[in-house]
Amino acid sequence: MTRFHEYLSEHFETIFRWFTILCAGTVLLIMAGMFINLAWNARLAIGEFGLGFLWSDAWDPALNEYGAFSSIYGTLVSTLIAMAIAVPMSVVIALFLVELAHPTVSKVVGSAIELLAAIPSIIYGMWGLFVFAPIMAETVQPFLQETLGLEKVPGLGRLFTGAPMGIGMLTAGLILALMILPFISAVMRDVFAMVPPVVKESAYGMGSTTWEVTHKVTLRYGIQGIIGACFLGLGRALGETMAVTFVIGNAHRISPSLYDAGNSIASTLANEFAEASEPIYLHSLIYLGLVLLVMTFFIQLAAQWWVARLKKSMGAGL
């Protein structure tokens, strides 16, 4: 045995510990580096527009005036639509797979969902533009206008005004929902499957129906995992670029109608980097990226805080 080997085996514990610290530290370093780097490369825009960038809806490359508001608005609205549809559906799908479906059905559908989750987003984008958008324009949007339009439902009907063009905020939200649905369902299925059978049995043993066991015990038991799954999906929806860029319409516009074209932070970045000739234009785009990073960061923090609070109040199992 060489001296080196001797040294290694003697100090293995220490070396290994330092190695793990180094690896963990790298993650922090990368994160800090990203913040600093983005901020540095956005410095012109930060200096020029300050925090007002966040609520300014100007976006005029000719006048070199930039504001993030329409992009933030579009990001939030499309994500909200996606979450409002995907989360409840995922809960139902996951519960069906774990609690109700025949094991064979559960296996087949479960694999299909995992496959869906693996489809690259560009495919969703293309499918959205060439297949889904025409369906929206010809069937879904006119139907919504007829049933929920301004004449039928004052107020809320504002959401469904305008020409049914197929692309726009609503289509982007729906495509996003479709993209995160398999992902959230798959995680939730695993969460539900982890609830110990004996806990469910004792709930059934009290004389509960399947529905009562599900919403009073299974859902609560898995609440941390469910929230985790939702926020993972949320993070994906916030940052999703390709699919959204294809169908959102890409206009710096804030409109109460979901049929109108809009944009999101990610789609703006994807569309406009190539055109950014002026330094201030480029810096503004990077500033926009920084805003997205901070948004995601705070959302994850909020998720963790929420889970910690729940844990304290119910001692959930996971």
């Binding site: 004996v198 049995e201 119910m314």
Partner: peptide
Amino acid sequence: MIFQKPTPFPM
């Protein structure tokens, strides 16, 4: 029914 391991519900 009471089981071998305690089964308190998450509440």
